[in-house]
Every structure is written in C-alpha cells, then in structure tokens.
Amino acid sequence: MAASRDSQTSLICFCLGSGVCLLPLFAYLSFLIESLWNDHYIYLIGSYVIACNAIIAGVYIQNKDTYNNGVRAGFLGICFGTGLLISLSDTSWVHFGWYITALAFFHWSEYYTTAVTNPKALSLESYLLDHSREYKLAALASWTEFTIEWFIFPSLKQIRYVSLIGLLLVIGGEFLRKLSMVTANTNFNHYVQHTKQAGHSLVTHGVYKFFRHPSYVGWFYWSIGTQLVLCNPICLAGYTAVSWRFFKERIFEEEI
C-alpha cells in the first residue's frame, strides 16, 4: 500500500493543522509567547489558523484538487489539535475536547485510509464532511444538547466513568472500521454499489470472519460512543435508534 500524492498531501496538512496543540509548548520557550498565550490565546490560535491556511494555499494553490484536499485536511487537523488542547485544559469542557478530537480524526482517517487502500474510489467526498443533511443535523443536535445541559446541569457533563466508557467505544469502533477498510482493500467503497465491478470479490477473511459488516459495526458503536463521551442522554437514545435503522436499511440494500 504505497503512499499516493493525495494521501501524502492529506497527512502533511493534517499534521500541520494539528500543530496548533503545540502552542502551549512554545509558550514555555519564550516569555513573549507565554504572555500572549496567557492573555490572548484565542488570538494566538487564530493567527496560527491563518498562517496554516496561508501555507497550504502557497504550496498547493496551483492545483485546485490538491488545494481542496489540503484545506480539508488542514481544517480537520486544526480541529484535532484544538480538541487536544481542550482535553488537556482545566475546564468543564474536557469531554467535549475528547469528542472534537475523535470526530476530526474519524473524518480525516476516512479519506486517508481510502487514499492508501483504494485510491480508485477516492474523492473529496471520502472525508464524509458532506455525508448527508441528516448527519449534519445529528451532529448539530449533539452539540446543542451538550451546550444546553452544560448550562443547566453542569454536573451531568462531569460523569467521568460514563465518558470513559464512551471513549473506549469510540476507540474500539474507530479501530474496527479502519481495520475493515484495510482488510477489504479495493473491495471497500463508501457508497453502495449496485453493479458488480470488475475485480470485485466478497471478502471473508480477517475481521470479516467474525463480522458480516465490520465497517458498519465499527461506525455504529463509534457514533454511540461519542454521545456517551458527551453524556448526552437524549442524543444517545436518538443516535442508537436512528443508526440502527440506517444501517439495517443500508445492509439490506447492499446485500441485494
């Protein structure tokens, strides 16, 4: 599985964006930066974001597709790094930081894994950032519930053992999904295929010995885990019901 130009661009830009989490480290190396970090950390992060996008534009602007790839990977990297900063902060939003980190990594790794294992099926849509209107509404609902409950019942968002269980589900689900993508290799596609492609075969080895649809199992438990991380009781019930129905219908269509 040789690295393609698309995968290299995505990885480089994701790492560049993720570098935002290193700003506190730089603060210890310079009194000036430390002062800026303590007093104007939002502006410092904003400056980093602008610089990151400027670098991506300067390097990749000549190729529209490569630039669009880099912008998305850089954006997800910034979200990933910011999530890490929140996760390590001394605030009541720590678990939201876990969530942002997991969400950003999921979307970036969907593209990167596809780029490495099945480049013929690769497109900007492989980031799944524009998956569906329902997916966006579900994400917005989880953010809204977390924020409202954080204001009204802040202690609800500090149930550490629940968030830890959710984190384990997120990590396990992510690992299972990516393992299935790597195992299926060129037989994996983000979209249901209605005609048999040349060279396509039914995968029954590896993780597919134990799961009929491991990528769906992984994504199902990953989605539930994110709501446990956030301690969102309403969205937890909603995500479970809606995800179950979505994958049940998708599997029925796919197996036909």
Score class of each variant (00 low, 15 high):
207 V>S: 02
196 K>D: 11
42 I>W: 01
198 A>M: 04
99 Y>S: 05
125 E>I: 04
251 I>R: 10
77 G>M: 14
217 V>H: 02
14 F>Q: 03
198 A>S: 12
89 S>P: 06
212 R>V: 06
22 L>G: 01
35 S>H: 03
163 S>A: 13
85 L>V: 07
200 H>E: 10
165 I>C: 10
220 F>L: 13
56 I>P: 04
44 L>T: 04
222 W>T: 01
128 L>D: 03
118 N>H: 14
58 G>R: 06
190 H>Q: 10
206 G>F: 07
114 T>F: 00
237 A>N: 01
5 R>Y: 06
227 Q>F: 00
78 I>T: 13
35 S>M: 01
236 L>N: 08
227 Q>S: 01
68 N>L: 13
16 L>G: 06
120 K>N: 14
143 W>S: 06
69 N>P: 05
185 N>M: 01
169 L>F: 15
127 Y>C: 12
164 L>Q: 13
10 S>V: 00
95 H>L: 10
50 I>K: 04
197 Q>D: 06
32 L>H: 12
209 K>F: 02
111 Y>S: 03
41 Y>I: 07
180 S>V: 10
204 T>M: 04
85 L>P: 08
153 F>R: 12
199 G>S: 03
19 G>T: 04
94 V>G: 00
192 V>D: 01
76 L>A: 09
164 L>K: 07
251 I>N: 08
50 I>N: 02
44 L>W: 02
5 R>I: 07
134 E>Q: 15
141 A>D: 05
156 L>Y: 15
58 G>E: 03
107 H>G: 02
84 L>C: 12
191 Y>W: 09
183 T>G: 03
99 Y>G: 02
133 R>I: 15
233 P>V: 00
73 A>V: 09
67 Y>Q: 07
127 Y>L: 09
12 I>H: 07
51 A>V: 14
89 S>K: 01
256 I>L: 11
120 K>V: 10
112 Y>D: 09
152 I>K: 03
50 I>T: 13
63 N>K: 11
58 G>P: 05
